[in-house]
Design a protein around this nucleic acid. Structure first.
Lengths: 336, 336
DNA sequence: CTTTATTTCGAGAACGTTACCGGTAACGTT
DNA sequence: AACGTTACCGGTAACGTTCTCGAAATAAAG
């Protein structure tokens, strides 16, 4: 903040009128003479006057700032979401203040506190993998600050939420495999307490059930840290008899590891085993064979979440609806 | 901003002391009695008092906010940089307000204006592909707001800059190819007015010259929109006689397209043609064969740039140095 | 017991703006 | 001539802090 800033006072002094009049002229109120108003505007232009946003914030009690918490900004999906958010925010003249939680609860909480302390008017949060506690968020809401959760939500906390329909995405992916004639479809999932794991797993189970395929517990393997444990998982899966003819992976990076392993073992994809991932990460278009995957509309999630939040801020009502965006199955060579 | 906020006034009233004393207690000044100070702190804790950041900003003339402009937030490199920035910022208790230029000059300018109007204390900018005009930035600096440019810099504008040594990166990549025995090394470059193109091209030329290899203009092909024109470029290159034995690409995505084309034509990589990219995009580890590439330390660029900016803000001196971070050649199968 | 130093505190201005309340012309109406 | 409208404008209090200055209370020194 510069100290040489031109203020409303300077304009008033130079024009020999009161600061109230200048203020009125600037935010074109009704009770002001056209000529004086024009004089003020002209001088303001000449002196390059810019209203002091901080001072305005103080009296109007609004900062036009929105806090966004992202688990990890590298990650194609979240950066897409962030892009959607900033686009909508700037359309409505809001600013976004942005923090990373780096997937830890501690950083998440400290970020939230910082954002609240900077008087954000609303919060957009996707919780870290560690988070399950509601009470921190309850505190924020008690202060009257609206929260919209996106993607990684906390079920116990009531607020507006924007998520993608992972169940349907997984369901359609597995249905696609079944239509291709697969009968023994394995699933590599994540930790059972994560909503991503649960939703995608349920979609998998639902599709099997609806198509009268038996559910074989041996074909469901947990990869605790996702791609880091995917290799172990695929090894385990490929050792099961009778052999599987498809693997549905919780995300693309795991699927890529699976593809690599299968190739190293001389197992042909998609002829011997079909593989499907989740996310539509850029890699999936580049691997060999290219990977069939479930596209999540990250940009749209961001746009919608920000739109809802701004609406809640401006209308001061909090409907607590949950919006579920649809995924899209992107069929590539790994399942053809 | 909530209206039910506990203020310093409330504390004063409840304790029957003046607001000045409360203020002193809160920012532990020297001239205050230990007991009263403790009483204030205790009550503040009980009532959950949080200082009003806006009010503090107004009188202290500092907002603790830094504006960051990114050409495009999706893009692994820039999101890495952003991660580095936010990490450093939060370490020094600064906040980052973030805008996208989406590679257009218009959005870049409007973003800058918005950020300045919100009283950011400094600006971190990577210019869009369209930008070449200095005067907008001159205006900002005249207001006393420090600017640090990172990655995509404007040479004509004097400020601190953080870039990666693309020349050296390209030079080493080409040297690596030469060491592998390559003699006819082609280069797919970008538009000639972009600094990325120029720097990498110069590195390529430098390495050839230093190793006494002739420069063949037929082997340098411009792909105007990078990867979108890479296919045409590689076709042109492969039609040149005598045949090339290596292709150095301006970025990884172009290189991946090159790899695909060569594979489709039955040309073996690295046996017939070696390929090297630039950026160390995540894809490069997943393609087949995996891609040798030049790693740019995005996270470090962000950290360093933010560190310099904060230093300039706090010490109010603007040394206008240029920092050049080193790249790292990541050797994978496409050049082995 | 006065004088001086030290500690502790309060009053009030300031930061730049908005918003409310009232005042003064000028004009028209009765 | 007295009154009511209207149009325009100024004074001033807020918003929640920090900061300077001086005053009061206490302690130390003579």
């Amino acid at each position: 903040m510069r100290s040489d800033q031109v203020t409303i006072k300077d304009l008033a002094r130079l024009l020999n009128i009161s600061i109230s009049t200048v203020s009125r002229a600037l935010r074109n109120a009704s009770d002001i003479n056209r000529e004086t108003k024009e004089a003020v505007l002209k001088l303001a232009e000449e002196l390059n006057y810019e209203p002091n946003f901080i001072a305005q914030s103080l009296v109007k009690k609004q900062t036009k700032m929105i806090g966004v918490i992202v688990p990890a900004i590298h990650s194609n999906y979240f950066s897409q979401a962030l892009a959607g958010m900033t686009d909508v925010a700037s359309e409505f003249n809001y600013h976004v203040m942005f923090c990373q939680s780096n997937e830890t609860l501690a950083q998440e909480i400290s970020s939230i506190k910082k954002l609240v302390a900077s008087n954000v008017e609303g919060l957009l949060v996707s919780v870290s993998k560690e988070s399950s506690d509601i009470c921190e968020f309850e505190k924020i809401r008690q202060k009257g600050i609206p929260i919209v959760m996106y993607d990684r939500i906390l079920n116990g906390f009531s607020c507006s939420k924007v998520i993608v329909d992972e169940y349907e995405g997984a369901y359609n992916a597995v249905k696609h495999l079944i239509r291709k004639g697969c009968k023994r479809i394995a699933h590599i999932t994540g930790p059972t307490d994560l909503s991503v794991s649960v939703n995608r797993m349920n979609g998998y189970l639902g599709a099997l059930k609806d198509h009268n395929l038996p559910i074989d517990p041996d074909l469901i393997v947990i990869a605790k840290a996702f791609e880091e444990n995917a290799l172990m998982a695929v090894k385990k899966i490929m050792s099961v008899k009778p052999a599987v003819d498809a693997i549905f992976c919780i995300n693309d990076l795991s699927a890529v590891i699976v593809l690599k392993y299968l190739k190293s073992k001389g197992i042909k994809v998609p002829e011997d085993v079909r593989v499907v991932g989740f996310n539509d990460d850029p890699v999936s278009g580049y691997v060999e064979p290219s990977l069939t995957t479930v596209m999540q509309p990250g940009y749209e999630v961001g746009k919608l979440a920000m739109g809802i939040l701004i609406d809640e801020i401006q209308n001061k009502n909090f409907p607590c609806q949950t919006f579920r965006l649809r995924t899209k199955l992107v069929i590539r060579n790994s399942s053809k």
